[in-house]
Amino acid sequence: MLYAKNNEDFKQRRLRAIRNDFDSGATQLARNALADLADYAEDCDAANIEALNKEILDLALALQQCRPSVATLATLIQAFIEKIQTLSSELTLNETRQAYGDIAEEVSQAAILAGRQAAQNLASKINKGSRLITHSCSANVMYLCDFLGEQLKEVIITESRPSMEGRTLARYLSKIEMPVQYITEAQIGNFIQQADLAVTGANTLLQDGSLINKSGTRLLALAARDAGIPFYVCAESFKHRPLMPEAITLEEMPAEELGLPQLAHVRARNLYFDLTPARLVTAWADEQGVTQTFINKSS
């Protein structure tokens, strides 16, 4: 196994990478985990199919549980688990390894297609010449900008501290020659009046349509409500979870990322995600369409 001493070393390395990845969006994070499962299926030490199944299932279940705020990770890995359980018992060990890799890629590609379809559905609702404001770096917002192209007048992007993933979106839109204004999220109140609509992705959509996303999303939704512009959530149905907001614990990362020196009587806080209530959402776009009445599809 590349860069790993043994099976356990590989699993711990990959779990650590997924656990500490706060730059990738929810779908990309899940796709990274699926790629890890494919790599592990190909290279892990397993003398027979039973041993291989145990190793893959162990890693899959650990990956499912390592990022509780990211429903996409748990959902797509569950899809992988369910599909591998349907494989023929007539396959050889090498054929089973290959089949696991193929299934991981199949689930990964299906996720991309769902995201693109959600963005295309939302694109059909956006007027030509609109100026869009967004927060963080959602792959679905990238797809949306691809579909709209010159129909968009401009995109306003927040920096999205502390990971600064807004820079990734800015670089992408620069490459496709999309006019962009790049701001700190503290400036949302200054720029919201320039926008015709606000759009974000989501890490997770809860039972009532509330969303978990990068901290600052709720501020954008509140600013949009105050400015009288729509706030759209573009997120695939596999991001749905059958949980209510009060059941959620938001992930908190080391305060050292904020760069504040040690000060007596001061406690720095670094919550990466916030919860935006459904009442602030104008409509939800997924691969099946755009609706103003949220229906949770996680059951």
Rank of each mutant, 00 (worst) to 15 (best):
A4G: 05
R16E: 13
N20M: 05
D23L: 15
S24H: 13
G25M: 03
N32E: 10
L34A: 04
L37W: 03
A41Y: 09
A41V: 10
E42M: 09
D43Q: 15
A46N: 08
A47P: 07
A47L: 13
E55A: 14
Q64H: 04
S69C: 13
L73P: 00
K83N: 01
I84V: 12
T86M: 00
E90H: 08
E90N: 10
E95N: 05
R97N: 03
R97Q: 02
G101L: 15
I103M: 00
A114I: 11
G115Q: 02
L122G: 02
A123L: 14
I126C: 06
C137R: 03
S138K: 01
V141Y: 03
L144V: 11
C145Q: 07
F147D: 14
R161L: 12
E165T: 10
L169F: 11
I176L: 14
E177C: 13
T184H: 04
Q187A: 13
V199D: 09
N203C: 12
L205S: 04
L205I: 15
I212F: 10
G216L: 14
A223Q: 01
V233N: 12
S237G: 05
H240I: 10
L250F: 08
M253I: 09
E257L: 12
A268E: 05
Y272W: 09
D274I: 04
P277F: 15
A283I: 11
Q288T: 05
G289K: 01
T293L: 14
